[in-house]
Amino acid sequence: MIIHILAQSPNPFDGVVPNFDVFGVEFNSTWKKLLGGVWGLAFVLFAFGAIRATLELQSAKRNGYESSVAGHTAALKRSVIGLGLLASLGLIFGAVLAVF
Rank of each mutant, 00 (worst) to 15 (best):
A60D: 03
E26N: 10
N11Q: 13
N28Q: 15
L34Y: 12
S59K: 15
F27M: 15
I5L: 10
G90M: 02
V16P: 01
I81F: 14
F20D: 12
A70E: 13
G40A: 04
R78N: 15
V38P: 01
F93A: 09
I92R: 03
I3M: 08
S79K: 09
L34Q: 13
A60Q: 00
R62F: 11
G90L: 07
H4T: 10
A47M: 10
Q58S: 07
A53W: 02
L6N: 09
G49E: 05
V44P: 04
S79W: 09
D14S: 15
T30L: 15
K61F: 03
P12H: 06
F100G: 11
N19L: 01
L55W: 14
Y65W: 07
V22T: 15
S88I: 10
I2C: 02
H4Y: 02
G37W: 06
A42L: 13
N28G: 13
G94K: 06
M1C: 02
L41I: 08
L91D: 04
F20S: 11
I3H: 10
Q8N: 07
S67H: 09
G40E: 06
F20K: 08
I5T: 07
V99M: 11
S9L: 14
E66R: 14
W31T: 12
P12E: 00
A60W: 00
F48N: 06
M1Q: 04
A95H: 01
L57K: 11
A87E: 03
G37Y: 05
L6V: 07
F100A: 09
W31L: 12
D14F: 13
G94I: 00
